[in-house]
Simulated scan of single mutants.
Amino acid sequence: MKMPLSYDERFEPNPVVATHKGYADVLALVTSSGPWSPAAFAGVDIAAMFNAHVTGCYIDPSLRSLAGIDDEPTVMALLMDAGRVERDDYDSFAAFARSRGVRHVSWENTQVAPAKTMRALGAWHDLIVLERDLAEASRMIDVLGEALLTCRAPCLVLPPRWDKPIEFKRMVIGWNGSIESIRAIHAALPLAALAEQVVILKDGALALENEGRQLPFDPVAYLRSHGVRVGEKPLYASPINSGRALLRAAMRQSADCLVMGAYGHARVRERILGGATRHILQNAEIPILLQH
């Protein structure tokens, strides 16, 4: 009689499963072309890692701090010679991308706010790369919060004035058992497969809070089944201080990327409690991959 597989055997790395195809389409929200903005560099370089298609999308400064409900095109946007601007910018962006090893390139000029732009283009992109200071500081949380909640695509958010090569050697993943954090781990899988070290920071109160509430998901076993070398460390923090604790722990691990679910609680509760998403969006000095 054939014996059932043990838990460990079921989740041993499998050569077929471990061969992950990576990202096919990367979207970079470009804020300048002379020189190219950090999101343009990062988006192109990630596309080069996976031989992927990259779309550059320019968002005019007059639109960057608008929420979705305020996204009527400005007079200047309506007066733009869209055909000429898009052709010129496409040629420039294509030359830039190809100089960094990307062969498949598209270009878009948006005339709506970031949230609607990301929701529309995110429908056919695997990853969106953007800068935290895309919107002015006083509007950043509202604009990026709305975009993260509505775009339905994983977003790699770069710190302000990011000028370093994009690397994923040491990845830290915040794990609290939420659906959002499961989605974030799945979205980060292509990058985790490139990492030399992946550490999961597990909420120390997770077992008590989530017992019996949802089907089990073991992030360590899942990542190992895809050939990722991963370890796990507990993280003990109150809900109010979870963002600060997660960021500090990531820095202690010398992480060059932090992965986490975005807005696991209602936006109102996040705002009242100063939630983890809000704190990390405001303070992270490394790229963060967020998924709602």
Rank of each mutant, 00 (worst) to 15 (best):
M171A: 11
S138W: 05
I179E: 15
T117D: 01
L149V: 15
E270C: 00
L289T: 04
S254F: 01
D91F: 06
R139P: 09
A18K: 12
A188H: 10
V228A: 15
V30K: 06
A135S: 11
R213M: 13
R267E: 13
P38D: 03
L156F: 13
G243D: 04
V26Q: 11
G174M: 03
V172P: 01
A284C: 03
V198K: 08
S37P: 04
H265R: 13
Y7D: 11
A67K: 04
H226S: 15
G212C: 12
H265I: 10
I141G: 02
W175I: 04
N51Q: 04
I272G: 00
G177M: 14
G243C: 09
R271F: 15
A95R: 05
P73Q: 04
F168M: 09
Q197W: 01
M3I: 03
E86N: 07
H265W: 13
I46F: 13
A276V: 03
V157N: 02
P154L: 10
G243K: 01
I69K: 13
L127R: 14
F217C: 10
P239S: 08
A113C: 08
A193G: 15
V85R: 05
S225I: 12
S225W: 14
P160Y: 14
E285M: 05
W124P: 02
L5N: 14
K21I: 04
V143N: 00
M49A: 13
N51H: 03
E72Q: 13
R244K: 05
R103D: 14
Q253I: 03
Y236N: 03
G145L: 02
Q282K: 01
D81S: 05
D91R: 08
V16E: 00
Y90I: 06
Y236F: 02
V26Y: 13
R224W: 11
Y236A: 06
F96V: 10
P165M: 05
L206D: 01
V228M: 15
G22Q: 00
Y7P: 06
T19C: 06
A237H: 02
A193P: 12
G264Q: 04
A276E: 04
S225Q: 11
L156T: 09
N283I: 05
P287A: 05
A113M: 09
K116T: 07
C155I: 05
G231N: 14
R170F: 12
R269P: 12
L289H: 02
T117S: 06
Q282Y: 11
D70M: 07
N176V: 03
L281Q: 07
I179N: 12
E136S: 10
N109S: 00
G34L: 09
V85W: 11
P287V: 08
E167N: 08
Y222T: 11
S99D: 08
T31P: 01
P13W: 09
V220L: 13
V259R: 02
H53E: 11
L191Q: 01
